[in-house]
């Protein structure tokens, strides 16, 4: 790396580039800008985090790759991408694991996840946060869905990622990966019968204006972002600044989760006023259908799923 000068004291300066895929209007973008601003202020300009929304810089797997390769870079991504390096993360983000945001937040603070973070550090990934939560993804369809059988033969749009496709397929749907840019017209024109996404997406992108008026509260995927920095870069930062950076990213996540909780009720009400109907689903039937995805994969810690379920049961 180049833009930093080694040493402590007043002349220390590090420029980090923070990249994510969210648009300027979304809460995650605002949160990241705020965190960057606070860190700049509290370190008296020593740690400058430049934020780049909308994948202007490498994002998704390429963002994590920058971190792994030791770039002066902060990647803010879905934690399932860490699964390429520490397979246990794939288990943590298996579908329908969590029934509330609190369950997940609490789990990330327990030793089981702390151990996973330590494994990530061995791969060069320092995890600064895992809980920039932006909502559960639910099914948004033309007809009411309560069981996996209801999804039979329905084309549901997913992002072009294997985990989403596998999830929707296991749930009983015909997973149809489409770029987001083509999704709304595909729903309008009947190329697909529905999509999946959070209530914030539903409202923000006006999905409710189309023919898909039913939302089944499957909570099948937890939408969350983690914050990652290279361990190499992290170790070079003076201790005093490290604690400030860590504190501010933790604080930013806490604030985003409380904001999310307070806003979600209003968003649901607003959607209902536009004629959107919400329904609960037969969770056990879906979890049964998803059982094949709770199977251990290569490289996972033996019994990882049982351990996670045991932790979650202890909270319920």
């Amino acid at each position: 790396g180049g833009q930093q000068e080694e040493g402590t004291g007043d002349d220390y300066k590090l420029v980090l580039k923070l990249s994510h895929v969210f648009s300027p209007a979304e809460q995650l973008t605002k949160s990241m800008d705020l965190v960057a601003e606070r860190i700049l202020e509290r370190t008296n300009g020593a740690i400058e985090i430049q934020t780049f929304p909308q994948a202007q810089l490498p994002a998704y797997k390429e963002g994590v790759e920058q971190v792994v390769r030791g770039a002066d870079f902060i990647s803010v991504e879905d934690p399932s991408f860490i699964g390429d390096y520490v397979p246990d993360f794939k288990a943590l983000y298996a579908p329908m694991m969590y029934r509330s945001f609190d369950e997940y937040v609490e789990l990330t603070q327990r030793p089981i996840v702390e151990e996973m973070k330590a494994k990530a550090e061995e791969q060069g990934i320092k995890i600064l946060a895992l809980d920039y939560i932006y909502g559960f993804r639910n099914l948004i369809t033309k007809k009411v869905i309560t069981t996996p059988a209801d999804l039979n033969g329905m084309k549901i749009r997913t992002p072009g990622s294997k985990s989403y496709i596998d999830t929707l397929t296991a749930m009983g749907a015909n997973a149809t990966p489409l770029p987001w840019g083509e999704t709304l017209s595909a729903v309008q024109q009947g190329v697909v019968d529905g999509l999946e996404g959070s209530e914030f997406t539903n409202l923000g992108t006006k999905v409710y204006e189309g023919p898909t008026k039913n939302v089944a509260n499957t909570r099948h995927i937890l939408g969350t972002c983690g914050v990652y920095i290279s361990t190499e870069v992290w170790d070079r930062i003076p201790e005093e600044y490290r604690s400030i950076v860590q504190e501010e990213f933790t604080k930013g996540a806490d604030e985003m989760v409380s904001l999310l909780k307070s806003q979600h009720g209003d968003v649901v009400k607003e959607l209902e006023s536009y004629g959107v109907m919400f329904n609960e689903v037969d969770g056990d039937a879906f979890r049964k259908a998803l059982a094949p995805l709770y199977k251990e994969q290569d490289g996972m810690t033996p019994g990882i799923f049982d351990s996670i379920f045991a932790e979650l049961d202890s909270m319920r």
């Binding site: 998704y60 792994v68 072009g160 990622s161």
Partner: peptide, 12 residues
């Protein structure tokens, strides 16, 4: 060489 662990998003 540097990133042998990376896999493609869909076909894995």
């Amino acid at each position: 060489q540097a990133n042998k662990l990376k896999r493609t998003p869909v076909l894995d």
